[in-house]
Amino acid sequence: MLQLEHIDKVFFKNTPDERWALRNLSCVVQPDEFVTIVGSNGAGKTTLLNIISGNHFPDRGRVIIEDHDVTSLPAFRRARFIGRVFQNTTQGTAASLTIEENFAIAYAKGRTRGLHLAISEHLRKIIREKLAEVGLGLENRLRDRVGLLSGGQRQALALLMATIGNPKILLLDEHTANLDPKTAEKIMNLTNLLIRDDHLTAFMITHDLGDALKYGTRTLLMDDGGIVLDISGEERKKMTINELLERFSERRHKKFANDRVLLSTETKEG
C-alpha cells in the first residue's frame, strides 16, 4: 500500500523561475491496484513518480509505503520496495553488460552485495525461464550485450528486472511510448501479466487516453500539480475518452491541452 500525504514539490524555490510541480497532493493506493495517470505536459506526472521513487524529495508532506515512512530515504534505500521502467529504453538496463549480468544486478536487489560471483548456474536457469515466458527469443542470448538488443527487447528486460526482486510498487513512466505499436502491445501484455501475478501496486503514466482506460483498475487525471479526476470501479468501466475529456473541461474550465494526447485520440477515432 502507498500513501501520499499533502505533497508539495517546488522547483527553483524563491527564484523568478519558481515552479510548483505538485500542490498539496494526497492519494492512497491499495495493493493490487493498477493506476493509470494521464495529464497535460507539466501536470506533474513524472514528478509524482520521482517523489514515490525517491529521486525527488517533497518540500512538504509524507510518503508512506507499507507503513514505512520513506519520505527522506534516498532512491537506493527504498529500491527494494520499488521497481521502475522509463520511457527511454536505454535507462532501464546497462548496455555494456550482458543480459545475464543485468539480471544478476537486479536479482541481488534488497541484499547486501558481496564478493561472490554474481552469476551461478542456478540464476541462469531462473533467467532462462523468465525470458522464455516473454517469448522474444532472448532465452538463448544470455551472454549477449544488452546494447545489441532492440528497444522492445530492452524494455521487456527492464520490466523483468524491475519486478524480479519482488517489489511492492511498480512505476511505469510511458514505458511503451518509444516502441512501435505491435511491440508496445506485447510489452503492455507482459506488464499486465507481471502486475497481476506479483500482486503489485502499479502506476503507469501514459499519453494515450484509450490505454489509460483500457488498462488498470483506476485512472488519475492530473493538472497543474494536482489530481483533478480520480475514477475507478463501475464508473471507470463505462467511461469513454470523450466523457473523460468533457469531465476534465467541466472541472478545470479549460480544454485538455496536450498535443500528443489530442493527436493520439484523433488517430484512434479517425
Partner: peptide
Amino acid sequence: TEIGLAIRATGDNETLVEAQG
C-alpha cells in the same frame, strides 16, 4: 562478483544502479 558488476554498471547507467538498490 556482485560488487564488481555494480562497479561496471555505475559508469554505464547510474540511474539503473540506484533503482536496483
